[in-house]
Structures are given as C-alpha cells and as structure tokens.
Design a binder for these strands. Structure first.
Lengths: 350, 350
DNA sequence: ATGAAAGCGCTAACAA
DNA sequence: TTGTTAGCGCTTTCAT
C-alpha cells in the first residue's frame, strides 16, 4: 500500500471508470468534479499509488515548479545552511529547487545555468558572484525571475537582496573600539567577489567613522577559505607593528586565523582579538568561540523566494525591480577582549 | 551569440532546412547523418542557441540521465564534500544529480524518494540511514538501481558499499594503546543509524582485540552533532573514574567534545586525547588539530556511481548484487598524546 | 460536469 | 541517409 510506482494517468482513469481528463482535474484539485466521481478517482489513485509524472506535467504546462539556486561553494558551511532554508521555503510554496555551485575556479556557473534553463526553472536565485556579464545579459533577455545577493551585476528587473554589511561591521568595530582596540587589521575575501569587496569597504568606512585610520599593511588578501586565513596570519606575524585585533571577511577565514595564531603561540583573545563574519553554526564551537557578524540565512532565503514569487506573478506587468535589506548583527562570544597592556606601547583603553 | 534560450527543435529544423529527426540525430551524435547536413544543423543550433528541452527528452526516451543522491544531513561537512565528488563523477558520466537530505527528525527521506521517482532517476545512492522498510521494499520492486552505504537494510540486488570501519578504528585504538592509554571512552552516534552502530561495534571489537575491556559507563550516547559532543563530555566529567582518551563517532562530535573540554579547563591532548571520525576538511583546523579516522569521499562517490552504472547496464540480466570496500585510515594530528601521569581517578590539572 | 482530442518538445520506428 | 509519423504522460480547450 505504500508503493511508489510508475502508473500512468490512463490506468487510473480505467480503474476509476472515468476519462483521463477527470483524473487530471481531481489530482489538480479543480473543483468542478462530481463528488462521487472524485472519490472513485481518489480511491483508484490510492490503490495504484499513482504519482503524476513531473516531466510530463512540466512539458505540457510549461511550468516546472522549480527554482534554481546558485551558490558559491558547497563546502563553506554558510551555504548548506542557506540551502536548507531556501529549499524548505520553496517546498512550502510548492516549488522544488535545483542546486548549482561553482567549483574551485569559479567554473561551473555557466553549466548549471544552462541546466537550469533546460529544466525550465521559473526563477533563479544567485547567491554567488563573478558571473560572466554575457550570461547575465542572457538571463535578462530570457525574462526569467532573478534575484541576486548583494548586487545585480547588470541592470534589469532583477531583485537585489541588499545585505547591510555596514551595520554589522560597524558594530564590530565599535565593539573593538570600546574594548580599547585602535589597531585593527582585516583579512579580506577574494578581490573579484562583490560581497567580499562590500565587506572590506564596510570595514574601511567603519574604521573611519570610529575615528581610526586604516593601515594598508594590515589589510590582508584572503580568499574566504581556512587556508587563506592561515596564510594571512602568517603574513601578519612577519610585520613589525601588528594589529591587536583582526577582523575577517568570513568565519572560515577567522577559523584559519585562529589555527595559525594558536600554532605560533598567540593567545586569543588575550594577545589578539579575532572577529569573523557569517555566524555559521560552527562559530560557537571554535576555540575560543568566535565573535562574529551574523546575517540570517532565513532572511536571505525568504527574501529570495519572495522576490522570485513576486517577479513570477508580475513579470509581464513590467513590475520594477524591488529590493530588500538583509540585516546583520554582531554576535559577541569569546574571541574578543581588551588588547594586551603593552600593545606596542600605544593602546589606550578606557 | 552566447544566448541561452527556449528555441524548439522545429525552429532549428526550419532554419537548417532539414527535418526535426535530423536535428535530433545531430544533437544526439548519431553518426548516420551526412556531414554537410550535420554542419548546417550545427550552425543553426548555434545561431539560435538551441538547447534541447530535458523534460521532453526524458519523457519520450524514458531516460532522465539523472541519479538521486540521498544524504543524512546537509550541515555535516562530510556530506557537502561527498556531494561534490558524487556530482562531478556523475557529470563526467553524463548524468545529473538530484539531491535529497533528511531534516532534523529524519523526515523528508520519503518525500525526496518520491520526488526522485517522479523525476525518473535512473538510480539512487542512499548515503543515509534509517529509511522505512516499506520504502525500501518499494524501491526493490521498482527495480531501480540502488546503492547503499554500509548496509542494505533489505535484501535485493542493491549494491552495498561496505566501509571498513574496523580497520581505521582498530588503528586508532592501537595508536592510543601505543601511546599508553588503556582507559578509552567512546561517544557514539544516533543509536538507530546503521553506520553509527557499525562504528560503535568496531570500537568495541578493537578494544577487545587490543586486550582492553570496555566500560559501559564510558560509552556515551551522542547524535553526530556538535551539541551531542558537548553533552557527552558534560556527562563524562561527572564520572568518578574517567577515560584518558575519548573516541568519537564523527568529527562534529569530536569538535563538540573539544569545545566542552576547553570550557571546563581540560587540556587536549595533555589531559585527555580525542579522536574523531570522517576526517572532514575542518578537522585539520580545530584546536588542537584533530586526530581522526578518514574515509575517502572520492572512493565512496566513485563506488556509488560505478555500482549505479553497472546496475543500470545489467539490471535486466539479473546481475547479482556486487559490493565494494571503502577503506579507512587513521590520520594522526595533535589531539592525541600520552596520557597524563596520574591517569587514574579524576584527572585534575592546573 | 464530463469526455474527446489536440498537442507540449522530443525520440524512434518505419518508410522512402 | 533522410523524412514522416506516432506517441511519451499530461493538461486543456472545446463539445457535449
């Protein structure tokens, strides 16, 4: 009775003694069917354990009831967390999701995009960066609902989910400042990623707003990986004058930094404070637990799906591109504290 | 020119001045087409940027060229790593992959399975546990290629990828033993998961083979999460006599254990050694870096796809279920060392 | 309210 | 070698 099978609509119709059209109406909840017949159909469906063929439905209706979700890297825990939110909200709205991600060389995006188009997705959420301009033009021409995180690299009707990087990062800088830090370094993400650039800019602006001057030597080029975080610290410890706090463009970077700091015998937060970005679940389990700037996956996912749904409804109406803000907030854990007393002789604490 | 679009085969045929059948032959690489015509077709395909509709292809051919991959939890880094391997090998073989995972309550498997069937996947790799027996029976009846990790919960032609848990865990126990430990605890995974049970059994057997006796009080019930690892350590520190080494059923558990150990001031490995399982990428970045038992995602993924492909070819021939072994091996890092001098009674330090 | 029939885009006989 | 045509499983007019 719990059988999953490959029964076709015709067999159901035969068993119920009705036409395929009636079966179709019943399975699609079209109300103009006689209660008695509908019941017979439902019984037949149950008995044969009929499940409509999705390909066929999609083919005939032109609707796949699928959204595409393109992310950067599957192995950054931030994304699995985002995927779960996205998928669960999509399912709630009757959609499935087709997942795509980019490989180490940022390849693959195009392949996945094509696959998504071929599968006739009804919208694509691009939670990644560095897509070819050409591809974006195509997407625009296809007039397929589209939502970007951070920024739409090309103008069109696409929705952009604007992450309030500045808010959280400013909060972090203030936190550090109030702890007594004035020497703050930053490990950035890949320089060609919009989100990484936005984070760096937010940091620079926050520094300025806190009355601090940025030191170019303290801006390290990371790549949003654990290894990148390690490498940046390795660079840092070679410096004559070093920051007393290090902010990282994402949590993976911060975890890598933590590792290298431990390896060279620098205590966190006693010797140096570290702040991450993303607030992945793991951030509460590092040693020490990571102070980090969180952005809600749920908000991101919901914002994306809402936008896709809205666009799908209003695409032909020429609705203007909407945009919504994703909030960020500092989560204080144990990787930040007052700077060491003699931090190169020039730390003022209050 | 780089346009992705929704042109149909008819428009291509018209532009190339041939029949749709010829276009179909060309796009599918069927060689019986005149070179000149084929060329014209290819030009038209390019000009219109034609991409065949996958739904339609699947519908008519009965072949979706898709494999299903069902995993436990997306948020355990082991799985994203596995997914990448699986997908990349699948693509190499001309297949796409449809992903499914289970939510916190082990729900969802059934939904994804149904979706996979509806999408007419040509095989399913089940890298998870605790599926309902009823569902497995159905799968068997469907005669769809099937591969399980660890064990096939029901007899059929399904391939099982047998992980050599004992080998790696035995190696770990020996490692601990040679370091001088004889008091070894174990944090297990969910008791209803086959793989968790196998890991625990392998530990028990290894202990015996190393001439050690298991202490029931040192077997903690974990759940393969960070939180579970923390909770187990919390239990452990309440014990009168405590182990000098703690093996964990997976890396997430070990990381959780590390966290709680740090919180209560126990140093790793000086006061207590910790060993994980899986060797996720992150294991090299914990504090201290985690000694753990690795199993290759690549081997798992390749084994699964090979099996699926083989079954697809020979299903109707009634080929017997094959099975292949997945190797495991200890990776020694810094979370293990000799036990503390006074390794009896409560370990007090500092 | 129900059914017959046309077709969604494609492949695979079958003809030519 | 190429084209014609009959569906794949389903939805959706259009009659009834």
């Amino acid at each position: 009775m719990s059988q999953i099978s490959r029964i076709s609509i015709r067999e159901v119709a035969a068993l119920a003694g009705v036409s395929v059209a009636t079966v179709s109406r019943v399975t699609n909840g079209i109300s103009t069917v006689d209660a008695g017949l509908a019941d017979r159909v439902r019984r037949a469906v149950k008995e044969l354990n009929y499940t409509p063929d999705q390909q066929a439905k999609a083919l005939v209706s032109g609707r796949s009831r699928t959204f595409g979700l393109l992310i950067s890297e599957l192995t950054n825990p931030f994304f699995p967390e985002l995927i779960q939110s996205f998928e669960s909200i999509a399912v709630t709205n009757g959609y499935e999701v087709l997942l795509g991600w980019m490989d180490a060389n940022n390849n693959g995006a195009r392949t996945y995009m094509r696959r998504m188009i071929q599968r006739k997705v009804e919208g694509i959420a691009v939670m990644t960066f560095g897509l070819e301009a050409a591809m974006l033009r195509d997407l625009n021409e296809l007039k397929i609902p589209l939502v970007f995180m951070d920024a739409a690299p090309v103008k069109g009707w696409a929705t952009v989910l604007e992450v309030e990087y500045y808010v959280g990062i400013h909060e972090a800088v203030l936190h550090l400042r109030s702890l007594g830090h004035s020497d703050i370094g930053f490990v950035s993400g890949p320089r060609d990623q919009t989100s990484a650039k936005l984070r760096l800019n937010a940091f620079l602006a926050s520094l300025k707003d806190a009355g601090l001057k940025p030191r170019p030597a303290w801006i390290f080029q990371g790549d949003h990986t654990l290894e990148g975080g390690m490498a940046s610290v390795q660079e840092m410890i070679l410096l004559g004058r070093q920051p007393t706090a290090l902010m990282c463009s994402n949590d993976l970077t911060a975890i890598g930094a933590l590792r290298m700091l431990a390896r060279v015998g620098r205590r966190v937060p006693e010797d140096i404070s570290v702040i991450g970005y993303d607030d992945i679940h793991l951030a509460a389990f590092t040693a020490p637990p990571l102070t980090t700037v969180g952005m809600s996956r749920g908000q991101l996912a919901r914002g994306a799906i809402d936008a896709l749904l809205r666009q799908a409804r209003h695409l032909e109406l020429g609705e203007p591109a909407s945009s919504s803000k994703i909030q960020t907030a500092l989560v204080i854990r144990e990787s930040t504290s007052r700077p060491p007393r003699r931090a190169k002789g020039r730390t003022r604490k209050r």
